[in-house]
């Protein structure tokens, strides 16, 4: 077992643990912190997969922005602690569906003949940047417009009614 693989296993276990905590936690704040753990572990996976830029993006956007927004939202929708369960009555059914999905996915992975892997090599920032801003320039611009639209839409939706 190479040290890389060992690190990978550790990080994976952290990611899965974070995920489990997210879906099982009885408290919303804990759940979001567990999600943060999982997301940061995924950033670690990206590093192990030689994609440092993506790891950076993951940390900045998920760790830095999204979780903060979620926590804000939780604060604003705080409804006292006696509001009852966070879980829906179909939780057993959901467990069955989740396990079935896991089975199906693993079956897919096992059944498929994957092409031989190449030796991974680091994806340079320069190369990624060049590709993103030449070949993918138009989708990039569209994505930025999408972000802008979402931003405006969020503001409009969340604005109090009396200020209209």
């Amino acid at each position: 077992m190479s040290p890389l693989l060992a690190i990978y296993i550790v990080v994976s276990v952290m990611a899965v643990a974070g995920g489990l905590g997210t879906v099982l936690a009885r408290n919303v704040v804990y759940a979001s912190l567990f999600l943060l753990l999982s997301l940061l572990s995924v950033a670690g996976i990206y590093v192990l997969l030689f994609s440092p830029f993506l790891a950076l993006v993951q940390v900045l956007i998920y760790g830095g922005a999204i979780i903060i927004v979620v926590l804000f939202a939780l604060m604003l929708t705080r409804q006292g602690d006696e509001t009852g369960s966070l879980d829906s009555p179909q939780k057993p059914l959901a467990a069955v569906a989740g396990l079935a999905a896991l089975g199906v996915l693993i079956a897919t992975i096992v059944v498929n003949k994957w092409p031989p892997s190449v030796d991974p090599e680091p994806v340079g920032f320069e190369k990624l940047g060049a590709t993103l801003f030449t070949q993918w320039a138009v989708p990039f611009e569209i994505a930025s417009v999408l972000l802008l639209v979402a931003l405006i839409g969020a503001i409009v939706i969340a604005r109090p009614e009396d200020s209209q």
């Binding site: 829906s88 179909q90 059914l93 959901a94 569906a97 079935a100 999905a101 199906v104």
Partner: peptide
């Protein structure tokens, strides 16, 4: 929403 989501998941599987 949960019912719909369940239907979607089962169908996709």
């Amino acid at each position: 929403v949960s019912t719909y989501m369940l239907t979607i998941a089962v169908t996709a599987m």
